[in-house]
Amino acid sequence: MARVVEATKRPTNLSLNAKVLDMARELGMNLSQTVDELLAAEVQRRYWARWNEDNREAIEHYNARIEREGLPLAAYRSFARGGG
């Protein structure tokens, strides 16, 4: 999912907790920007949660293969595995 930096804004109506809204205004918060940023973060979180669920079986098969066969090209690593 590409992160959208600039996008057209669209007006919408929201119903928000009155006390929270009053406090946000009292604190001088930009409500549109705050909601936009939080909504974008939640959309991204849910997108990747869905992607992981949709691809769970393939990921499990891949991980099992790596467990069985090791990492591809592991013999060509130029650094040692193990302790720090």
Rank of each mutant, 00 (worst) to 15 (best):
A2K: 04
V4P: 00
E6N: 01
E6V: 02
E6L: 00
A7D: 08
T8D: 05
R10A: 04
R10W: 04
R10C: 02
R10I: 09
P11Q: 03
T12H: 01
T12A: 13
N13Q: 05
L14N: 03
L14G: 02
L16M: 09
N17D: 14
N17Q: 07
N17W: 09
A18Q: 06
A18D: 10
K19T: 05
K19C: 00
V20D: 09
V20M: 04
L21E: 11
L21I: 01
L21S: 08
D22M: 04
D22E: 13
M23K: 06
A24M: 07
R25Q: 12
R25N: 13
E26R: 02
E26F: 03
L27I: 01
L27V: 00
G28K: 04
G28D: 13
G28V: 07
M29V: 10
N30C: 02
L31W: 02
S32L: 06
S32I: 03
Q33L: 07
T34E: 09
T34R: 01
V35I: 15
D36V: 02
E37W: 01
L38H: 05
L38G: 03
L39G: 07
L39W: 07
A41R: 14
E42T: 05
E42H: 08
V43Y: 03
V43T: 05
Q44I: 02
Q44T: 05
R45Q: 08
R45D: 07
R46V: 13
R46N: 14
Y47E: 09
Y47L: 05
Y47N: 03
W48F: 12
A49T: 12
A49P: 00
R50P: 01
R50L: 14
R50H: 13
W51N: 04
W51Q: 10
W51G: 00
W51I: 10
W51H: 12
W51F: 15
N52S: 09
N52C: 07
N52E: 15
N52K: 11
E53Y: 08
E53F: 10
D54H: 04
N55W: 06
N55V: 10
R56A: 15
R56V: 12
E57D: 15
E57T: 10
A58I: 11
A58N: 11
A58C: 04
A58P: 00
I59C: 02
E60D: 15
E60P: 00
E60H: 12
H61A: 10
H61C: 03
Y62A: 11
Y62V: 07
N63Q: 12
R65N: 13
R65L: 14
R65D: 15
R65E: 15
I66L: 14
R68F: 08
R68C: 05
E69H: 09
E69M: 08
L71W: 11
L71K: 06
P72W: 04
L73C: 08
L73S: 11
A74K: 15
A75S: 14
A75I: 04
Y76K: 13
Y76T: 13
R77T: 09
R77K: 15
S78C: 09
S78A: 13
S78Y: 06
S78H: 12
F79D: 12
F79I: 10
A80P: 01
R81N: 09
R81K: 11
R81T: 12
G82K: 08
G83C: 01
G83H: 03
G83P: 03
G84L: 11
G84C: 01
G84E: 14
G84T: 07
G84Y: 06
